[in-house]
Design a binder for these strands. Structure first.
Length: 318
DNA sequence: ACTCGAATAT
DNA sequence: AATATTCGAG
């Protein structure tokens, strides 16, 4: 099971475009309304920090105009960062933890809230992994390709770990069945999509993930017309600003989205700002063989049982 | 020194 | 259960 078959691509691997050039991943992240519905109004998040290498002073301005990763709402436990600007109505008494520090000044010991992997975010993740290929799909690279502001390598690593387990499990019992992805129809689905993997079920799993793609079969182009993805939208700022404006306009009270009784709420995401990342070419084998763009239908469907699935997210946003 | 990945912790 | 954090290995 060695991968010596990868000499052809190790070649163009170096000619690949830099990360900033590519990012064809079509994903808008969560819809603005949804994001805003949750919270986002909180220009005070201490986000981002994902540049690992000795990257220079990420031109990270004091920034407060971009809702990049809106971490949000203090979970029922702590989070000393009360959105001063927006009471957000829901004023559940934050039981003071007793951690005296919970004052108003976040000080430097701020812990960012747990990342919530929304289906949209996960999709982006899967896309990145798919485009990278399992071999090159390592946290750092995935993170870069995802271009999600505020996402850290650890975030991705953690998710990746779990994702791999999921794939493994699927391989185990998939034998023919839907193989993944979607379970679409097969009905063979069973415990596999138990509540445990609901997240994963929401995104298509590229075929080659499940079964080792044979290099000698078929034909795929060694070279990739990747050049297609060269767009520079410097207007993103304005876009972001627009979102902010929208936020101010809309004050939607959140009241029904899947916020698990357990605790945390979700943060909003936006495409990362002008990426300061100029370095390291991220090897991005264009998508290999067939790769379904996915049909995101609510999981479920399932087999006759009648497993009804509440779509807790806008099904047609993507 | 850095990143990955499994194990472990919350 | 879902994420985070720790820790050993390349």
């Amino acid at each position: 099971m060695r991968e010596e078959d990868s000499n052809w691509f190790s070649r163009w691997e170096e000619e690949l475009p830099s990360p900033e050039e590519l990012m064809p991943i079509t994903q808008t992240l969560i819809t603005p309304d949804l994001a805003l519905a949750f919270d986002i109004g909180n220009p005070h998040n201490s986000n981002n920090n994902n540049n690992t290498t000795t990257n220079s002073p990420t031109p990270q301005p004091p920034n407060n105009s971009l809702p990049t990763l809106s971490q949000s709402v203090p979970p029922p436990s702590s989070v000393p960062s009360p959105p001063p600007s927006q009471p957000l109505s829901s004023d559940f008494d934050s039981a003071e933890l007793g951690s005296g520090a919970a004052g108003d000044e976040p000080a430097r010991t701020l812990k960012r809230p747990r990342l919530v992997w929304t289906p949209q975010l996960h999709k982006r993740f899967v896309d990145a992994v798919a485009h990278l290929g399992i071999k090159n799909a390592v946290p750092k690279t995935i993170m870069q390709l995802m271009s999600v502001d505020g996402l850290t390598r650890e975030n991705v690593a953690s998710h990746l770990q779990k994702y791999r387990l999921y794939l493994k499990r699927m391989q185990g019992l998939s034998s023919g069945g839907g193989g993944g992805g979607g379970n679409g129809g097969g009905g063979a689905l069973s415990a596999a999509d138990a509540a445990t993997d609901h997240l994963f079920a929401s995104a298509p799993v590229p075929h080659h993930f499940l079964h080792p793609v044979r290099p000698n079969s078929d034909h795929f182009l060694p070279f990739v017309p990747v050049a297609a993805a060269l767009q520079h939208h410097h207007n993103q700022q304005m876009a972001a600003a627009a979102v902010v404006a929208a936020q101010q306009q809309y004050h939607r009270q959140v009241g029904q989205f899947g916020s698990p009784p357990g605790g945390q709420y979700e943060h909003g995401f936006l495409a990362r700002q002008p990426q300061p990342v100029h370095r390291m070419a991220v090897p991005v084998p264009a998508h290999s063989p067939t790769y379904v763009e996915d049909l995101d239908s609510p999981v479920g469907g399932g087999g006759g049982g009648g497993r009804k699935v509440l779509t807790l997210f806008p099904t047609g946003d993507d």
